[in-house]
Design a protein around this nucleic acid. Structure first.
Length: 1147
RNA sequence: GCUCGGGUGGUGGAACUGGUAGACACGCAGGACUUAAAAUCCUGUGACCCUUACAGGUCGUGCGGGUUCGAUUCCCGCCCCGAGUACCA
């Protein structure tokens, strides 16, 4: 049989799935290797041919590593929370979970088609409560941690509390400068609420007031990119900058470690550079300027303290807190006006029009810290409130922004560093001698900076300081489709939920929109409250510090874990009767709160009201047995012993008369006294986590995907450590790739994982762009001269030709005629000539006339008026799937666009050739190529190899199906090596020749080298060369083909598995075969064709033995007849011989 | 503006530490097989000049310089394209 890729590929995909061939094990004698792809967001559009590029590369690498004897972990999952599904939900009312599930299924199907060696048993989805339970859990750990600068790592907040209780807040442990210092005594005197609010300044997850873009009309916070020109992008509602509470993660605490850690990881330089810029470390100093006639000082941050004597004004950000205080009466009105304007521009806007300089003098002055001279204080929106201190000392001579500001407002410019021309521009380089600078005069810039800082610190005017551009990461989103934040509020103070109450399941809501009062969608959820477990009699694990409170604990963790699991399961799958009863009990309908499936002692109660100490049990049929009844009684007794009441109903009771049952419960509640206050109900946080939460730790979960007790087991993470190869797009440089490093370092600090970087090596695959195809439509738009329009109107067209009444303008009438004429398409050569003015409009018109008589009538009538605007060839997008090698399938085109069924085509050489352009792959450009279609036509092995053959992995490039035939041919040739002309499988056991071995070992060596440096495109051509060579040699020797199959198998696994089996090996054993060993002996050559060049230009060749030494080579070359002819009597000045490379003769 | 990539035939690309530029593939042209088509196979294919032919020559890796016996590769200056980032004091 010929190469039947469809059957082969289907069979093998099934074999791998059935046998779980790629299931990774957490214990092995082999060394481990962890290959991770950035998991996809499953969008509705499905995969296009660009998405699998990185997956294919990493799959080749994984398969290669298996052959090299590694225990490979290669998992896949889905990052499924996100905006598109939510937007779709808002529009259609369809639950995002439903859309997501559908998309996910389609993704899986498409991925499966490509033959990846994923261990699907470890699949994770960020939207799965079993997964996000641990995302929430990590958030709780962040909340309960602070960053200890002394030990330079995150520590439990209890350590900090202990410090506060013993030492108070000394300057040594102050996390941020805003936090006031206090003594231990003062700490103890604070109320619980005061203490908690203070601790928020330290927690790694915290709420704070932050500046946001607030849109009152939409009732939501908008991201910077959702605001344009001061109004919301959607709807055009006004947006203002507002301070409001916002959850954030204190990533800034890790700024230095995130920066330094880059040195240890093998990531692309561009990603590291992006992260460095994003973190933006700058070293400088703070400096205080005393305000005249005031007790206050303005603190600025500067990296150029050397230019202190060049300060001619100080500028504050419009939001700076001192602005209102220092503005003099005279300037109050103008300053307020300015602030109002500045406030209504988003930060992005302010940054967008840099040229538009604006500012306002406040009327206030500060004193120069050294000379004491008065310096005016301005406000200007080029100063950002969020960076440094929100105030700058302006040195127009040596800072371009200050320079522009000074020029605009006519402020003095003082030169303090020599070297520039201040009449033209600011002189910014850190080179030159200081002048006009008192004690700094004569120093060069670097010395001056040091000296200035020293003097500033000595005089107590400021402190050397490191500033980062990086800001804390906003963590709350006013969205529905995300992980709920496991926080409840008591007296306005946030507390975390108990870990055993996780996951906090995303609730059902009636709409996925904010509430009328502007709260996030989660505020729509019924009973979105939480009752902390502290006093609840559940079978909880014993906690030493709180032992006194837990009167009913089981004290046994394993029992507790089982109870917890089961109760969650029960809640998800209530029995019919339980569901009926719950309808009447839920939501305090009877005046008190019932919980269902709640652990107590070593049981799970069906319904329990803690305040009234009442348990309601609904017993199924099996309770009728004597044995079971005995157990029930024993259980009731135990519960009674701890003060509980138990009422039992049977299923039949409920089904027969539910009202009677409820009445009994009501009656019982009436007689029971209200118990102690058992905690009560507290409102839950209504914002959800951002998209990057779930992806910040997923690489760990794959190591132990089904663990319900821990986010990852210690021994699993001890074995897999970290990702060895991480493959993904560079667009995540400052998002995901920074956050995942942050979380990893945090988890490392807590001692939960043994490494503090997520991935040793990172490869960024390039983006595959679309290659759009174009057709060129002849368009005729005559200029409308009054005379012929009138004529036209009167003579040719009838009222009934009009499209509609409002089209009754003369121009529309005319276009109607032209537009309804059948179209003419010109092949691309005409278009190119047209663009290059080689093909005139007259020629086009003549071509149209001769090709298409129907249009001739129109042209003859109005065509005298051909000018720049009348005739054009308009490119229109055509579906790339009906274009092959740029040739249009005209029949398919007419089917695709019925409106062009009558169109005429002006061909070249009998074909319609389409033009092309590289654009983003998108539906609207008709340039999306679906991998399924390619696989249908050529098979997955061809797709895999072709994607690799396209070019260097890391380079972005357009998809072009044109070359795929070459790869397909290669696989057929490969298949043919094993078969005779009638496609019978025939291999010979004869000993391979030297030539054949050479061909094979070239591949073994080259492919190994190429894979190790991710140069997959060149290894594909190496395979091609080898198969061409072996084909020419008619080699079908087992010894050669056996090894070749192994080396090719990472690239084209299906065909190789098939041939491997045909070769007589155990079915499916190929994935774990041994990569053949390279033997250099087969490649050694005795002789070499030395290129002989004269003055660097190759003129001749000479075959010489490789064992010859340099001097002998020189002699032999000079003696050769060929060279003597070329020299034509000249004597060489010099002869350069590079052994095994080249001979160069200098004349 | 700054940072990081990149610029090689008609096209995608190769040339790994300076040593025969254009591997491999597409496309194109010619040929074989075939009633025909498909498939397959063979040959040619950077540009220009010269030649009946054999052969030979000149130019050629964005542009201009430099280092070197020798530069796509190293250095200096410039141009263009792509990506990221942007009043960060």
């Amino acid at each position: 049989m010929d190469y039947q890729f469809k059957k082969i590929e289907q069979d093998w995909r099934k074999f791998w799935a059935d046998n779980q061939t790629f299931k990774a094990h957490n214990t092995s004698d082999k060394p481990k290797y962890y290959v991770l792809d950035m998991f996809p967001y499953p969008s509705g559009a499905g995969l296009h041919v660009g998405h699998p590029l990185g997956y294919i590369a990493s799959d080749i690498f994984s398969r290669y590593k298996r052959l090299k004897g590694f225990n490979v972990l290669h998992p896949m999952g889905y990052d499924a929370f996100g905006l598109p599904a939510e937007q779709y939900a808002i529009q259609t009312g369809q639950h995002p979970a439903v859309t997501t599930a559908a998309n996910l299924e389609r993704y899986r199907e498409q991925l499966d088609n490509i033959g990846f060696s994923y261990d699907w048993s470890r699949e994770i989805r960020t939207t799965d409560p079993h997964y996000y339970k641990w995302t929430q859990w990590i958030f709780i750990q962040l909340f309960h941690s602070w960053y200890n600068k002394t030990t330079d790592k995150a520590e439990p907040i209890t350590n900090l509390i202990a410090l506060f209780e013993t030492e108070g807040n000394t300057c040594v442990i102050a996390a941020c400068e805003e936090t006031p210092l206090f003594t231990a005594h003062e700490w103890k005197a604070k109320s619980e609420k005061e203490q908690q609010l203070l601790l928020l300044n330290y927690r790694l997850a915290y709420t704070s007031e932050a500046w946001v873009n607030w849109c009152p009309a939409l009732g939501t916070v908008l991201a910077n990119d959702e605001v344009k020109d001061g109004v919301s992008e959607r709807g055009g509602h006004p947006v203002e900058r507002k301070r409001m509470p916002q959850w954030s993660l204190r990533i800034t605490a890790y700024a230095d470690r995130l920066l330094n850690g880059l040195a240890e990881i093998d990531w692309t330089e561009s990603i590291k550079e992006s992260q460095r810029n994003w973190i933006g470390k700058s070293e400088g100093t703070t400096l205080d300027f005393k305000i005249q006639n005031s007790e206050d000082t303005i603190t600025v941050f500067t990296t150029r303290p050397d230019t202190i004597f060049g300060v001619s004004f100080v500028t504050l950000a419009p939001e700076h807190e001192l602005v209102a205080k220092i503005t003099t009466n005279e300037y109050k009105t103008v300053v307020e006006e300015y602030i109002t304007i500045a406030k209504n521009r988003s930060e992005r806007d302010r940054q967008a029009d840099v040229k538009n300089i604006s500012g306002q003098f406040t009327g206030a002055y500060v004193q120069h810290p050294f000379s004491g001279a008065p310096i005016p204080v301005w406000i200007g929106d080029y100063v950002l409130a969020g960076y440094g201190t929100g105030a700058v000392m302006a040195v127009p001579g040596h800072d371009s922004r200050d320079y522009a500001f000074a020029k605009h407002f006519n402020l003095p410019i003082i030169e303090v560093v020599q070297g520039g021309n201040l009449a033209e521009e600011a002189y910014e380089p850190k080179e030159g001698k200081l002048i006009n600078s008192d004690f700094l005069n004569g120093l060069d810039v670097k010395q001056a900076i040091k000296k200035a800082i020293a003097v500033i610190e000595e005089k107590g005017l400021g402190k050397g300081k490191v500033n980062f551009r990086l800001r804390d990461a906003a963590f709350g989103r006013q969205r529905y489709w995300g992980e709920p934040i496991p926080i409840y509020y008591k007296d306005g103070v946030p507390y975390t939920m108990a870990e055993e109450d996780l996951p906090l399941i995303l609730p059902e809501v009636d709409k996925f929109l904010p509430t009328e009062s502007g709260e996030p969608p989660l505020a729509r959820a019924k009973d979105w409250t939480y009752s902390p477990p502290q006093p609840s009699p559940r079978g909880r694990e014993s906690v030493a510090a709180n032992t006194g409170n837990f009167r009913y604990e089981t004290g046994d963790k394993s029992i507790w874990n089982v109870l917890k699991e089961n109760s969650q399961e029960h809640r998800k799958n209530p029995t019919e009767t339980e569901a009926i009863v719950w309808k009447f009990l839920r939501g305090k309908q009877l005046g008190v709160r019932f919980r269902r499936q709640h652990p107590i002692l070593t049981y799970i109660a069906d319904f329990i009201c803690i305040e009234k100490k009442l348990i309601v049990e609904i017993d199924g049929g099996y309770h009728a047995t004597a044995e079971q009844q005995a157990l029930d009684t024993a259980r009731t007794n135990e519960l009674v012993a701890i003060g509980y009441n138990v009422i039992r109903f049977s299923n039949e009771d409920v089904l027969a008369n539910i009202n009677a049952v409820i009445e009994q419960i009501k009656a019982k509640l009436k007689v029971l006294p209200i118990g102690e206050d058992l905690g009560g109900e507290y409102p839950l946080e209504t914002t959800t986590m951002p998209g990057w939460a779930g992806s910040s730790w997923y690489f760990l979960r794959y190591m132990d995907a089904h663990n319900s007790n821990e986010f990852v087991a210690k021994d699993a993470v001890k074995y897999w450590q970290q990702v060895d190869l991480y493959m993904g797009g560079a667009e995540h440089a400052t998002g995901h790739l920074l956050y995942v490093r942050f979380w990893t370092k945090f988890l490392f600090d807590l001692g939960l994982i043994p490494v503090d970087e997520p991935a040793k090596k990172l490869i960024n695959q390039g983006m595959i762009q679309g290659r759009s195809s174009f057709m060129y439509r002849f368009d005729f738009k005559p200029s409308l001269r009054n005379d012929f329009i009138v004529e036209n109107h009167n003579s040719n067209l009838k009222e009934s030709d009009l499209k509609s009444a409002h089209d009754e303008t003369l121009s529309d009438l005319f276009y109607y005629t032209v537009e309804n004429s059948p179209s003419v398409f010109f092949s691309s050569a005409y278009y190119n000539d047209f663009v290059n003015s080689k093909f005139s409009k007259e020629s086009i018109v003549n071509t149209v006339k001769s090709n298409f008589p129907a249009l001739e009538r129109v042209l003859n009538k109005y065509g005298t008026d051909i000018d720049e605007k009348t005739v054009s060839l308009t490119p229109i997008n055509v579906d790339v799937n009906i274009v092959e090698n740029d040739v249009l399938d005209i029949t398919a085109f007419k089917k695709w666009r019925p409106e062009y069924a009558d169109a005429t085509f002006v061909l070249e050489d009998g074909k319609y050739i389409c033009g092309s352009e590289v654009e983003k792959m998108s539906k609207s450009k008709w340039n999306v190529v679906n991998p399924d279609d390619i696989i249908e036509r050529y098979g997955a092995d061809t797709l895999r190899m072709y994607e690799m053959f396209l070019g260097p992995l890391e380079q972005s490039k357009p998809w072009n199906t044109n070359g795929i035939e070459g790869v397909f041919k290669f696989l057929r040739k490969f298949w043919k090596l094993f078969h005779d002309d009638q496609f019978n499988f025939v291999v010979s056991d004869a000993a391979p020749s030297k030539e054949e071995l050479k061909s094979l070992h070239k591949v073994i060596k080259k492919v190994e080298e190429d894979i190790e440096r991710f140069s997959f495109n060149t290894s594909v051509s190496t395979f091609m060369i080898c198969v061409n060579e072996l084909g020419a040699l008619k080699c079908n020797k087992r010894a050669i083909l056996h090894d070749l199959v192994i080396t090719l198998s990472p690239y084209a696994p299906h065909i190789c598995e098939e041939l491997w089996t045909l070769l007589g090996n155990k079915k499916g054993s190929l994935s774990f075969a041994n990569y053949p060993t390279f033997n250099p002996a087969y490649l050694t050559e005795d002789a070499f064709d030395y290129p002989i060049s004269i003055n660097g230009k190759v003129r001749s060749k000479l075959n010489l033995s490789l064992s010859m030494e340099v001097a002998d080579i020189e002699k032999a070359v000079l003696a050769s007849e060929e060279l003597q002819k070329l020299l034509a009597g000249q004597t060489p000045k010099k002869v350069i011989v590079v052994k095994g490379k080249i001979v160069n003769i200098v004349l």
